[in-house]
């Protein structure tokens, strides 16, 4: 600094640069640190963020145009043969599924009848909306996608998102024209599951690095096998019961650890689908108090689950 002091006395106006870079850095660093604290702890900035994201929406549309134009021209030049073969495949699928649907209907009436006999609560169907993926999340290290439905379409935070093969994730942020879906492979998302074979309940967490999910907090001697199907247990009141989540692909029992490390492969086509279904939250009157508290932070109630489970075991 003393070296500069002499220079500064004779600095002509031509070289004046305003406040020193260091002063500017301190100012802006303090500003962004306080913004980060406000955003992460106090949740004051949600409305401001929503407004700005709505303003950015036209830019987003502009940025998506080249990809859309490319896709549309590619669709336009699709060959007669591929259309025919796709049509045939879809027809076969429709016939197969309608046969299954007939069985499903009779099972559903039978189930309702049995539930009546047992005086158990009816499991109600939850309506859903069809959405389309606008783009992947901007940060390659969080597993998120942006969907074209937002608060304008009555999308709420915490809604479950599924595709034809299983659960994809949960809506975590809602903007006016779009919403952010956190995939089940994200480390921050937990989902209550059940082993289809024996009804064992557990909590599945995203594995983070690859497209796998993790079943922590299960004892080493747990009855689980390679190839077991994991389905949603429905105890959280968000995901309907019985949706496919994953298939167990790897179990490691380490004698040094009281827990087994279990990896599952998601059954939904997380990386390769464009359309997905956003399932409405269940009727708030029918919700348990535990599920209502979900509104502010979708993950906490699920996180509290495994402790209770372990204690009872």
């Amino acid at each position: 600094m003393p070296r500069r002091a002499i220079d500064n006395q004779y600095t002509p106006a031509f070289f004046v640069r305003g406040p020193s870079p260091f002063a500017r850095l301190i100012f802006f660093a303090a500003l962004s640190l306080s913004l980060m604290a406000t955003d992460s702890r106090l949740h004051y900035l949600i409305e401001i963020r929503q407004g700005f994201v709505a303003l950015l929406y036209p830019l987003q549309i502009l940025a998506n145009t080249p990809a859309n134009v490319y896709k549309n021209t590619k669709d336009y030049f699709v060959t007669h043969n591929s259309l025919l073969s796709e049509n045939q495949r879809l027809n076969t699928q429709a016939v197969m599924q309608s046969a299954e649907l007939q069985r499903f209907k009779s099972l559903e009436t039978e189930n309702a009848h049995l539930r009546n006999l047992l005086d158990a609560a009816q499991s109600s169907a939850q309506p859903a909306k069809m959405g389309e993926i606008l783009h992947m999340g901007r940060d390659p290290f969080t597993h998120k996608v942006i969907v074209n439905l937002g608060s304008r379409n009555n999308i709420l935070e915490g809604q479950a998102v599924v595709d034809a093969d299983g659960v994809i994730g949960q809506v975590t942020k809602v903007y006016p024209f779009s919403s952010e879906v956190t995939l089940i492979t994200d480390k921050e998302l937990a989902i209550p599951v059940q082993v289809e074979r024996n009804g064992l309940r557990a909590i599945a967490f995203g594995h983070g690095k690859d497209t796998r999910i993790d079943l922590p907090y299960l004892p080493a001697n747990v009855d689980i096998r390679k190839g077991d199907k994991l389905v949603t247990s429905g105890i959280d009141g968000v995901y309907p019961t019985g949706l496919a989540v994953a298939e167990v692909i790897n179990i490691e029992r380490n004698p040094n650890s009281p827990f087994a490390s279990i990896l599952g492969k998601p059954s939904a086509g997380i990386e390769n689908h464009k359309q997905l279904l956003l399932i409405d939250l269940p009727d708030p009157n029918a919700m348990s108090p535990r599920a209502i508290s979900k509104k502010t932070k979708p993950i906490t109630p699920e996180l509290s689950e495994p402790k209770a489970d372990n204690a009872s075991r």
């Binding site: 802006f28 660093a29 962004s32 913004l35 980060m36 955003d39 963020r49 994201v53």
Partner: peptide, 14 residues
């Protein structure tokens, strides 16, 4: 960038 990415507000700014 923070707004567009949906990350924590201010981290990219810093």
């Amino acid at each position: 960038i923070d707004l567009a990415s949906g990350g924590l507000f201010g981290q990219c700014g810093l």
